[in-house]
């Protein structure tokens, strides 16, 4: 393999780790409450704008921006859960999809209205320069984003599988009534799940903002990436989202390198449709 291809693949893996992180948020909500958040990509977008605001107002980079974005989005998540999700969950499917889809528009166009449609970027050297590791050029911002995203995704998996909070959340997703009889409050658990999912998504947004363009409509593209990742990885499966996220990052980068950047989204969306046809349960999921 040429060193350029290796570099492309490494770049894809680092981007894929960020995809995995924000897709974990989507898959967590989906797996736990059977609600698909159509505003998920716009949560990523909000995280990006929070990071941008932190930089313009305070002049500091993602080390402050990312935790702030996580906190802000976690708050948004809780508000959305109590304000909207809790009631539409009980309603028909139409209400669920409409509710989160309307939320997506509301967020997207509020940001559009406040910031304009222009693409914004953070300065390229905010995190650091470019390193040369064994002949592979690595941008510090991508490296930081990829590594942090990978660690947080793994942490999320451990939180869900190894802690009592995770077990309580699992119990609520299995049978909310039974969980309630065991003294677990489904409402609090679901609110916590929204906080965690939205917080992780905001964090991913702040990380990706260090090297990605920032625009109100970026959530549309990233939202579809999250859908593709989750359906590839299988519902509710954080490890599935991790593997699928890395895979999609690599596929995107390699196809952008081989057939041109314009076609990378076409490749990913077509792959998604192929999966729906032939393996709708995803790589690791159960139906």
């Amino acid at each position: 393999m040429s060193s350029i291809l290796v570099q492309v693949i490494v770049g894809g893996l680092l981007l894929g780790a960020v995809y995995a992180l924000f897709s974990s948020g989507l898959t967590l909500i989906w797996g736990m409450m059977n609600v698909v958040n159509f505003a998920h990509g716009d949560f990523v977008m909000l995280g990006m704008y929070v990071a941008f605001m932190v930089w313009t107002l305070l002049g500091v980079g993602p080390f402050v921006g990312a935790p702030v974005a996580a906190l802000v989005l976690a708050t948004v998540g809780v508000i959305v859960y109590f304000g909207l999700i809790r009631s539409v969950m009980k309603g028909p499917m139409l209400a669920q999809i409409l509710g989160t889809f309307g939320l997506a528009l509301l967020l997207r166009y509020s940001v559009f209205w406040a910031f304009g449609a222009n693409f914004l970027t953070l300065p390229g050297d905010l995190v650091g320069g470019t390193y040369d590791v064994l002949g592979i050029k690595l941008q510090a911002s991508r490296l930081l984003a990829g590594v942090v995203a990978l660690l947080v995704t793994l942490g999320l998996h451990l939180l869900l599988t190894r802690t009592s909070l995770g077990s309580k959340m699992l119990a609520v997703s299995e049978d909310a009534t039974a969980a309630q009889l065991m003294g677990i409050r489904p409402d609090s658990m679901q609110a916590i799940a929204w906080a965690i999912a939205a917080g992780a998504t905001g964090l991913a947004g702040a990380l990706i903002a260090t090297f990605f363009y920032i625009a109100p409509t970026v959530g549309e593209t990233l939202g579809i990436v999250a859908f593709v990742t989750v359906s590839l990885g299988g519902f509710g499966s954080v490890p599935g989202a991790l593997v699928a996220g890395l895979l999609i990052g690599v596929i995107e980068s390699v196809s952008a390198y081989w057939i041109g950047a314009v076609y990378k989204d076409i490749v990913v969306y077509s792959l998604f449709l192929c999966f729906l046809w032939f393996r709708p349960q995803g790589l690791m999921g159960k139906m």
Binding site: G83, L84, L98, L106, R108, Y109
Partner: peptide
């Protein structure tokens, strides 16, 4: 306009 549209959709759904 689309902020208002979004708000209307959320309110209908809710």
């Amino acid at each position: 306009t689309f902020v208002v549209y979004g708000a209307i959709i959320v309110i209908i759904a809710r």
